[in-house]
């Protein structure tokens, strides 16, 4: 997994609340058995006409945003289905961070598994960023994960919180299974005890 240290990019404004995972990646693209290649379907219904031509007014189709790495949205981003295809599509498009006032839990969790940082700011701070992007097209953002600091190209800056474990994982691009298996004795011990106490939970 790609480590997340400092990411600098134009900020892509998507001025919507409750952006759901069906909107991020519609179901017709979930039939794949691969993780890669979903970036071209990201926000499909908003991004393309029925005949497949890109909609000129959709933000991801307009430079400089089409090459952006940081997405800005309103509250409850990523609500709905648990499909990891949503962060896969974001990552494949090149998105490294999403900034919003709040995120749906499963989605935020899935992002961490794919090296995407979710930055939770206050609704006022997010409003400020939307205004900044509107008044200065091409407005850029620099996110420093180790420092927990975000800075705008106009000098505006603020801090954000990330749980230490999550930060460590992102900073080093770690995946969990290896870490977890370091505890395999503890897991086996717990499991043996559970089997003894509640044998009906074990069919085999």
């Amino acid at each position: 997994m790609e480590a997340f240290t400092v990411v600098e990019s134009v900020l892509i404004p998507l001025d919507r609340a409750n952006v759901d995972t069906d909107a991020i990646i519609p179901k017709q693209f979930l039939k794949t058995i691969e993780r890669q290649g979903l970036g071209r379907h990201l926000f499909h219904d908003w991004r393309y006409e029925d005949d497949g031509t890109p909609k000129a007014d959709f933000v991801l189709n307009r430079p400089p945003y089409s090459g952006g790495k940081i997405l800005l949205a309103r509250e409850n981003f990523g609500c709905g289905s648990s499909r990891e295809h949503a962060p896969w599509a974001l990552a494949d498009f090149g998105i490294r961070a999403v900034v919003a006032p709040s995120f749906a839990d499963i989605f935020a969790n899935n992002c961490v598994q794919n090296g995407i940082l979710t930055v939770t700011l206050s609704a006022d701070e997010v409003e400020h960023l939307f205004q900044a992007v509107q008044s200065r097209p091409g407005y850029g953002l620099r996110i420093d994960l180790a420092q927990g600091e975000i800075q705008g190209s106009d000098g505006w800056r603020t801090h954000f919180e990330v749980a230490p474990g999550t930060r460590h994982k992102l900073l080093h691009g770690l995946d969990d299974i290896g870490i977890t298996l370091q505890h395999k004795e503890a897991i086996a011990r717990y499991e043996a005890q559970r089997r003894e106490q509640f044998p009906w939970l074990f069919r085999g």
């Binding site: 993780r35 709905g80 289905s81 648990s82 499909r83 990891e84 962060p87 499963i106 969790n109 899935n110 598994q113 794919n114 995946d175 969990d176 299974i177 977890t180 298996l181 395999k184 897991i187």
Partner: peptide, 29 residues
């Protein structure tokens, strides 16, 4: 790997939806 896993809570289970990376994690650990 489905957000409507919450359904099973009706039988007093702690049930929740997960992403595919976590599905793999459960298979392995």
């Amino acid at each position: 790997g489905d957000s409507h896993t919450a359904t099973h809570g009706a039988l007093a289970t702690l049930a929740f939806g997960i992403g595919t990376t976590e599905v793999e994690h459960v298979l392995a650990t």
